[in-house]
Nucleic acid binder design. Structure first.
Lengths: 267, 267
DNA sequence: GCAAAAGTGTTGGCGCTACACCCATGG
DNA sequence: CCATGGGTGTAGCGCCAACACTTTTGC
């Protein structure tokens, strides 16, 4: 039943190339991260990933949005196109970062598939819209996906690698701002770090660290005012121009003080 | 002229896949780093990359070893195979690390080529052998290759990315040991870090840092004794079992003392 | 209504650790 | 001349406490 195609290519290749079978499928899969700002969630549970149900996929399993690269299409463009087609979300090019390539011969039992994984960081879809972008796509918490059986192929591996890439980029680039809306508070920014580190960060130290790099974030003449929010209104900020942080933002934690998961809030 | 091939594949793919042209070539290119231990070299000049002349390549330009992935071949295996074929050097699987994928439509003017880049760290070929592995392949200093015009395709970009990956892995894994022979001195290990950081590191601090992580390196009952080496003989070490370093090995340098290439910033 | 309590953001400070720079010693 | 080890001043940072400004609760 397989369709047949004629493939012709330049003869300016060496012998090995001419005797080569061509049955590679080059995919791009995308891990879209977001931070759920819900105050009731613990920091470890705020990180969410955009996943979908593939039409012909295994029952009950999630998959990352992704698809074949087209001719004359940049890899990043494939990522943006497939995410929009399959989930309705439109990514910005500058929010995309490559995670790596996955090409083991047996990673897809249908044919030889090379997947190039990208990662994107987006603000949480605000309370205005529902969390689901379509019937078949939604944001799901990262922790619940750590059970690899919920995901198709090696997508569990890819998501884990994407989080590692993101966490390491948080330390010395301004990618964290991708998670935030144009105007944001320091607490929102701090929650980004907490979500990837999977533990809480001291607000005072965090404030000093981000202030240490000039032109990273800039205060604006505005304060948070989300009607029902208790507490002192927070200073609002906008992104500065610094893309590379001069001082690495890393939080070592005294291992004795890590609380067992399951205990509720502090204080 | 161009050869023609029949390509047949499973029908278990969706509509978009069936209407897709298949003319992707999946390559693996490998950046093999080594450290030249020559005492006369400055730390910035010790880092070297294994490059070769392609048979049909542009005149006078170097290229990274690499080639097409074969059916049922893991990407890492392609890397090892092509490096051995083209340069005679046999890499170990555990020394390979993925750098990333490069797939812009115009990166190869002959056809659509997806390159997956790997990086490997090897001890410097000792004085026993010549530096050249074959007439067409040799180690060339990283700094001289920074002039992108000496390299084909986007290989200059790939090498730069590979160095960044290596430097970041040096900070918290034991990859630096890949550069060393089974028995090595602390100075040899320090030169590895200096080569990637591109500046000198205080020997005393370096010693304390590597000693801080247990089971990273282990002293053996032997001392360096290279007749012509001046100074006190150095304690020799062998690799320990630790793969992940407990303390990050990073050397901040007083910004005032950085050589005159750059921007001095605030504070 | 009003006062107290509780929740959140912001600022200051103490104490400890890491470490960059320097120096002494020994092969 | 180079490897090894010690010492010291200092900057960074983890932790805690106090304060500022708001909503919520109790009577």
């Amino acid at each position: 039943m397989g369709d047949k195609y004629l493939i012709e290519y330049s003869d300016d290749v060496n012998k090995q190339q001419r005797t080569k079978q061509l049955d590679f499928f080059v995919y791009v899969d995308t891990v879209v991260f977001t931070i759920n700002p819900d105050r009731l969630l613990r920091p470890e549970d705020r990180l969410e990933v955009l996943v979908m149900k593939r039409p012909g996929g295994s029952k009950g399993k999630w998959a990352l949005p992704g698809g074949l690269v087209e001719d004359d299409e940049k890899l990043e463009h494939t990522s943006i196109r497939k995410v929009r087609e399959e989930t309705g979300l439109t990514l910005k090019l500058r929010d995309l970062h490559q995670v790596g390539a996955y090409g083991d011969p047996d990673r897809d039992n249908r044919f030889r598939a090379i997947a190039i994984a990208y990662m994107a960081l987006v603000p949480h879809p605000s309370e205005l819209r529902p969390i689901k972008y379509s019937d078949e796509a939604s944001f799901v918490s990262y922790r619940s996906l750590r059970d690899g059986r919920l995901l198709e192929f090696d997508h569990s591996t890819i998501i884990y690698a994407a989080r590692k890439v993101a966490r390491s980029m948080l330390e010395d680039t301004n990618v964290a701002l991708s998670f935030c809306k144009p105007k944001f508070t320091l607490t929102e920014l701090r929650k980004v770090y907490e979500s990837f580190l999977q533990y809480e960060v001291d607000p005072a130290n965090f404030r000093r660290k981000v202030a240490a790099t000039s032109d990273f974030i800039l205060p604006i003449d505005e304060f948070s005012d989300f009607g029902s929010a208790p507490g002192r209104p927070a200073q609002m900020y906008r992104a500065g121009k610094a893309e590379q942080l001069s001082t690495q933002i890393r939080f070592r934690r005294n291992l004795d003080k890590i609380r067992p998961t399951g205990t509720s809030k502090k204080r």
